[in-house]
Design a protein around this nucleic acid. Structure first.
Length: 805
DNA sequence: TAGTTTTAAGTTTTT
DNA sequence: CTTAAAACTA
């Protein structure tokens, strides 16, 4: 059987034959190195693949999928491969299909997308209707704020984070272990009430997409059995980023017969802050007894000087599985460390460097460059400078399309259409534009809508029933809203169509939705029938055009609800852009059928994949601006890491485990570079509009100055002190020293010192405590306020003044 | 209640 | 500095 395997020609040198083997290996296996091949051909026991950066991890997974189908006669549909990002899932599917087209039938999804798929089919076992909508973090906060009215938004956000973390750790409100997340009684109650409310509404949050499937699998052995029969092979990518709940899901899905293979790199674990549990990978051999480990330690991406710098930094971490990455590429340029006076000089340096190099090389040269930074906010300066020099660029990951107000409004309308129990969506749009339906009315409606009120929790039904009892103004407004919803509903083709563009496997015999999908969710009688054109739903010029499929529904909802008109009239300048965004949303919807199922599918895809389709993105010759986190899995010929200063990278509140995570982030960033690596560090930086003095990041010292070509004004003390001999894991010593120095040069604070603070005016020091984070200065201001400061953090905000002032 | 002004607060990272 | 939330006024 002939097949075509696309591969870069320079890899042909790996086309070897297996030693001692009489028959030649097929090409797609011959290109692998011995360790890679061992990983691909491994069977029978659980397998942990420790894959260093650039060691051909994706190739191994995709090849393994193809090999299982091709050589082991495995049904593609019995293979499940989970990743963490949609991009990774797509890439994996594409590459696996290149080796064998049948791989397209394997289930390749993100953890969350798999969870949603599972719940659509089996959620009813946990009391979840199949028409649930997925709440994002914003919606979660909105819902939570209705449960804790007297708290500020910031406090609600914090609570939402705790709940999200609790679910990451597979902790329910009644779990004793919940104390580890937050030991307050109130939190436990709040969490319980939130869960109850979510259940009544019939929606799920992100955490539920993992947690609920585990609960179902644990309590229903026959469901678990069915899934274990279905999926004989489970592959997990980026395993170091999995959390406790995801581990539990993996455990429940895998029986004694299941072949489990996880791939990861403990040095690239950078999502601890959102619940990733590095121990999942560290303890894999214990949790899956008899597991084999294959190490992929040959790096094909970076030249050895680059790898040396990256490894040197991450070597300072303790608690690693430990592996030695070897560069297969010899030679190469020494990475450059650039000391710059300030961030303007930094942007200028980067732009000039790229201009000089790429401008001269011509075609395709810009695409080789990437500028990396710690926080999204840092991208602004680079954008303006690149724009000024007419250097083409693209910013990865900062497209907040689905977070825009008008888009969220439209999505809320659509969500409500699908699930009229959705309180969050209802509150968001029922009085937008203002229709006289105030908070009092909304609270009344929501209050009357209990699950057993006969309306089944349906807010639209309750609202309609309450119409006669409402004041005229509110009544008229509510009618207008219900009409708009009815109008959107009328745009849907009534008969249930079960196909979806999402590529769900056809003929899914595994746990089909009970009762079918055609169940009416919203009564279509009354308001929706009313002919339009009464003037209460003004057409928004010809700005919005409905195309195919679901876009008809989107456009009609947006126009008839008055959302489009609201945004257009509200802000003349931004309005047109907002209409354009709504149009883009409608365009995206046009790919889906105008059915209830299509709408559900559309919403699910938006919730789970926020990245906007970058079809042409790969082909374009542009510089990439990207956060360090977002670079994982990517590679560039030339990489500039910027803002490598204490306080920025690492952030200065990081210590111990968090600091180690930052160090891994450095490792991830540096190992993206194939040919050239530049590290930038500024002496001054504007933070909150204030210019602050910065120190070089401790990571720069850890990189080893002898491994770097250093240019620019080297800060005092940088070259003098080299890294500690022996290279022990003692991190943070350098920071402590420098803090000490800076503090003493300012002069220590004493009780009675008078000072001036930019925001609070004059005051005097009343007390000094030695806090964990340095001296804690208590100040009494002339305004009467008493405040405490960490002198280390705030030193530039207040200054000592003499007695004469 | 809606829209405005004032104040404060915060800048990781994401499915 | 930018943005979001609280407070205020018409």
């Amino acid at each position: 059987m002939a097949f075509v395997y696309n591969m870069e020609s320079n890899r042909s040198k790996y086309q070897v034959r297996a030693a001692g083997s009489a028959s030649p290996l097929p090409d797609y296996l011959a290109v692998l190195n011995p360790e890679q091949r061992e990983a691909v051909l491994h069977t029978g026991k659980p397998l942990l693949i420790l894959a260093g950066a650039g060691s051909g991890k994706t190739r191994v997974i995709t090849t393994k999928i193809a090999w299982l189908i091709r050589e082991r006669g495995m049904d593609p549909r019995s293979i499940l491969a989970v990743t963490f990002t949609n991009k990774a899932a797509r890439e994996m599917a594409d590459r696996a299909r290149l080796i064998d087209p049948r791989a397209g039938d394997a289930m390749l999804r993100t953890f969350h997308s798999f969870g949603a798929w599972f719940l659509r089919r089996n959620g009813s076992l946990a009391g979840l209707a199949p028409n649930f909508v997925i709440y994002d973090d914003d919606d979660t906060v909105s819902l939570l704020s209705t449960l804790m009215e007297d708290l500020s938004r910031a406090e609600v956000k914090l609570a939402a984070q705790y709940i999200s973390r609790a679910k990451d750790y597979f902790l329910s409100p009644e779990d004793p272990e919940l104390d580890r997340i937050n030991y307050h009684r109130e939190f436990r109650d709040l969490y319980a009430r939130y869960e109850e409310r979510l259940r009544q509404i019939g929606n799920v949050d992100f955490g539920d997409l993992i947690k609920k499937p585990v609960e179902i699998l644990r309590t229903m052995p026959e469901v678990a059995r069915r899934f274990r029969e279905r999926f004989r092979v489970i592959l997990v990518d980026e395993y170091q980023d999995s959390n406790v709940a995801q581990f539990a899901l993996l455990k429940e899905l895998s029986g004694p017969e299941t072949y489990v293979c996880v791939v990861g790199d403990d040095d690239q674990s950078i999502y601890r802050f959102r619940g990733a549990e590095v121990r999942n990978i560290l303890e894999f051999p214990d949790r899956f007894p008899g597991a084999d480990i294959v190490r992929l330690e040959r790096n094909y991406r970076s030249t050895s000087p680059i790898l040396a710098v990256a490894s040197s930094v991450v070597d300072y971490n303790r608690g690693r599985l430990g592996k030695t990455l070897r560069a297969e590429r010899g030679g190469g340029k020494t990475p450059t460390l650039v000391f710059l006076p300030d961030q303007d000089a930094e942007t200028d340096f980067c732009a000039a460097l790229i201009e000089k190099s790429a401008g001269a090389s011509g075609k395709g040269a810009y695409a080789g460059w990437a500028i990396l930074y710690r926080t999204n906010a840092q991208s602004l300066g680079f954008e303006t400078e690149l724009l000024r020099r007419r250097i083409p660029y693209r910013v990865v990951g900062s497209l907040k399309f689905y977070e825009r107000e008008e888009v969220k409004d439209a999505l809320a309308l659509l969500s409500f259409l699908v699930n009229p129990r959705d309180e969050v969506a209802f509150r968001r749009v029922v009085n937008k534009p203002a229709r006289g339906v105030g908070a009092a009315t909304v609270d009344r409606i929501v209050g009357f809508t209990s699950p057993d009120s006969g309306a089944g929790g349906d807010l639209a039904v309750t609202a309609r029933r309450m119409l006669p009892d409402l004041p005229a103004k509110a009544r008229a407004g509510l009618i207008a809203f219900l009409e708009a919803i009815g109008s959107g509903l009328a745009a849907l083709v009534p008969e249930p169509v079960s196909d979806s563009p999402a590529g769900d496997l056809p003929g899914e015999e595994l746990g089909d939705v009970p009762g079918g999908k055609g169940e009416p969710v919203l009564e279509q009688a009354g308001a929706g029938r009313k002919p339009r054109g009464k003037g209460d739903a003004p057409k928004v010029r010809e700005e919005l055009r409905a195309g195919e499929g679901l876009s008809v529904c989107v456009v009609r909802l947006v126009e008839d609800s008055g959302i489009a008109g609201y945004h257009l009239s509200h802000d003349e300048i931004a309005g047109n852009q907002r209409i354009a965004n709504l149009q883009e949303l409608a365009n995206a919807a046009s790919l889906y059928p105008a059915t209830r199922a299509g709408l559900l599918d559309f919403l699910e895809h938006i919730e789970l994949d926020r990245s906007i389709a970058e079809d042409a993105g790969d082909a374009e010759d542009t510089v990439t601006l990207i956060t360090l986190h977002n670079t994982k899995g990517l590679e560039f010929r030339r990489v500039i890491m910027t803002g490598i200063e204490q306080g920025v990278f690492p952030r200065d509140d990081k210590k111990d485990d968090d600091l180690e995570e930052e160090r891994r982030l450095f490792y991830v960033g540096a190992t993206r570079a194939m040919d050239e690596l530049y590290l930038c560090s500024c002496a001054r930086r504007r933070i909150f509009g204030r210019t602050m003095a910065m120190e070089p990041s401790i990571f720069l010292r850890e990189a080893g100055k002898s491994s770097l070509r250093i240019i620019g004004d080297v800060p005092y003390g940088f070259t003098r002190q080299d890294r500690h001999s022996g290279g022990s894991g003692k991190s943070g010593a350098g920071t402590a020293d420098s803090r000490q120095r800076r503090r003493s040069s300012d002069g220590r604070w004493q009780t009675g010192d008078r000072l001036f603070h930019d925001d609070h005016g004059y005051g005097w020091v009343t007390e000094i405590q030695e806090g964990e984070e340095g001296p804690l200065v208590q100040v009494c201001f002339e305004t009467g306020r008493e405040l405490r400061f960490l002198s280390r953090h705030q030193s530039s905000r207040f200054m000592k003044v003499g007695d004469d002032v």
